[in-house]
Design a protein around this nucleic acid. Structure first.
Lengths: 193, 193
DNA sequence: GTCTATACAAGGATAGAC
DNA sequence: GTCTATCCTTGTATAGAC
């Protein structure tokens, strides 16, 4: 569905530049407030040219979600290199805390996107839902390996805790909220093992 | 700042109807996707007439926030009638669970509004922030009365848990997520006392 | 005070030159 | 394959009749 590299002649990854720019700008400004011109500028591509690569704004949003999905896959791959499920979960949390300044300014990339797409008529909300589900599934496996029979519920609770603290960190513009919640969650993981 | 009843001659609460309609429609459709025509239709007021009561769309958003603030005040007043802090917190959670179908369709009214206003240039995000802070403050007092020295952190964690499960309930369109998390949070409250 | 008609701006999308 | 010019729709806001 997505041609990762050049298709015919030139275009040294303009499509990829546009997708990456979309992911960034849509997160920072929100879907509705972002214009095609904004994305084109960020990708350093003339406005009219955008339509050669993406027929509609929706396709651009879809490409942005793809980018997020790939980022998630990369993160999970890195986490899976760690030896124990407890370490993997705590490394996930540490990653969230590291990104706290982004959360202060723009919230969680996935969460804000999911909230916004829910209000749109297109079927893109299902695509983000799949992304979120994938993260919960991975988290559930970690809790299972920890021997918890209520792994699904705990996984949902952990991801929800992150989504929620992202909203508060963003709304109250206070990175320390994320730091404190990260500490609390790590203690909680330790108490389960 | 807000004239609650009629000012001069007639208008049997048109302003109030518009504010209530704004609160409802802005939550359901999102701020950016909602047009003045949408709000006018919901309030059963002709479009052009809107500007007699609110000079800009932003003033309408402000009025919607005011409505939410009053709703919150009413809820807190009702909760304060309960005898113990533990019961008050669990009643708060029960209220969230009751509203789960709304969460499935549109997410948390306050949380989605906060996320969206963050992306706008106007200073309205500070107004929602005050609302959120008020709820956290009240929650903190309950934990303090329970004798917890880490009351602030627990209050933030509880409100974050709700914000987060609202995002997930909405994104995954599953009311049971809210039910399960509600149970978990109530057990947690009980374990603190 | 109430409502209609309309000005004005912005943004998504397309046609077609190069 | 690249880019410019432009059409068309939608939505905010205002002028002014009633």
């Amino acid at each position: 569905m997505t041609n990762s590299t050049t298709r015919a002649g030139r275009a040294p990854g303009k499509r990829e530049r546009l997708a990456a720019a979309a992911a960034k700008v849509l997160h920072e400004q929100g879907v509705e407030k972002t214009t095609l011109a904004d994305i084109a500028r960020e990708a350093d591509v003339p406005v009219g040219n955008v339509y050669y690569y993406f027929k509609t704004k929706n396709e651009l949003v879809e490409a942005a979600i793809d980018t997020h999905t790939q980022n998630l896959a990369g993160m999970i791959e890195a986490l899976d290199a760690l030896p124990t499920p407890g370490e993997r979960l705590k490394a996930l949390i540490a990653g969230w805390v590291e990104q706290r300044d982004t959360a202060v300014r723009f919230g969680c990339p996935t969460g804000t996107l999911a909230s916004e797409l829910d209000k749109r008529a297109d079927g893109l909300d299902a695509t983000v839902a799949a992304l979120v589900r994938a993260l919960i599934d991975w988290t559930e496996r970690q809790f299972s390996e920890l021997g918890r029979s209520d792994a699904r519920e705990l996984a949902v609770a952990l991801i929800a805790a992150y989504q929620g603290i992202s909203v508060l960190t963003n709304t109250l513009r206070d990175p320390e909220l994320m730091v404190a919640e990260g500490r609390r969650l790590k203690r909680w993981i330790d108490s389960l093992a």
